[in-house]
Amino acid sequence: MRLNAKLWQSVAKNYAKLLEEEDSCDVSITVGSGDDIKTFNVHSLILRTQTPYFHTAFSAQWGKKKGDKIVLSKPNVTPAIFEDILKFIYSSELKLDNKDVQHLLGLLSASDELILPVLSDHVQKYLAINQASWIKEHPLETLNAAFQHESWKELQNCCVSTICKNPWMLFETPNFYHLDESILLYIIKKDELQMEESDIWYHILTWGIMQHADLPDDLNEYTNEDFNNLKKTLSKFLPVIRFFNMSLEDFDTKVSPYRKIFPDELYEDILWHFLKPDRPKKYISSILPKRHHPYANSKFIKTNYAKITAYKTSYSKYATKPDAFKRVMIGP
Rank of each mutant, 00 (worst) to 15 (best):
S44D: 05
K153S: 11
P239G: 07
H55C: 11
K136L: 04
Q148G: 01
R242V: 07
S28Q: 12
F243T: 11
K307T: 10
A146Y: 02
D84I: 03
F325R: 05
K6Q: 06
Q148W: 00
E137L: 06
K276Y: 10
D84Q: 10
F82L: 04
N4A: 00
N41F: 15
I81R: 03
Q50C: 13
W134L: 07
E172P: 01
M1I: 11
S161M: 14
D269L: 09
W168N: 13
P79I: 06
K69Q: 15
Y305P: 07
V160E: 04
T309L: 09
A128G: 09
K312A: 06
N245K: 13
L108W: 03
F147T: 05
K38V: 08
E154C: 15
L271P: 01
D97N: 11
I204G: 00
K260D: 15
T233Y: 01
K254D: 00
S10Y: 13
L230Y: 02
N166I: 02
I209E: 12
L114V: 02
F325P: 01
K74P: 01
P280R: 10
S73H: 10
S286L: 10
E225L: 12
E265M: 14
K69A: 12
G106M: 10
G67F: 12
P216Y: 08
K307V: 05
Y15W: 08
Y126F: 15
I301H: 08
D214L: 14
I37T: 15
E113C: 12
S111C: 04
C25M: 04
Q194I: 01
D26H: 02
L288R: 13
L248W: 10
L179G: 07
F237S: 03
K254R: 15
L234K: 07
D269P: 04
T206Y: 08
G331E: 15
P174H: 13
N130V: 00
G67R: 12
S73F: 05
V42G: 00
G32L: 09
E181R: 00
Y311D: 13
V77D: 03
L47T: 05
L140W: 08
P174N: 13
Y90E: 02
K87N: 13
Y258R: 11
T223M: 02
E21H: 11
M329A: 11
L238Y: 09
K136A: 09
S91P: 05
V118E: 12
N228K: 14
I270S: 10
N130K: 06
I200G: 07
L94C: 08
K321S: 13
S24D: 11
K65P: 10
I81D: 03
G67P: 12
D226I: 09
L205E: 01
N130E: 14
W152Y: 00
P277R: 11
V27R: 09
P79T: 06
T233P: 10
L219H: 14
N98A: 14
D226R: 13
D218N: 13
T206W: 07
S133F: 02
L119H: 10
L104C: 03
I284A: 15
A57I: 00
P117Y: 00
Y202C: 07
D23I: 05
L19S: 03
K64A: 09
Q124H: 04
L205P: 04
L275P: 00
L3K: 02
W272R: 06
K317N: 09
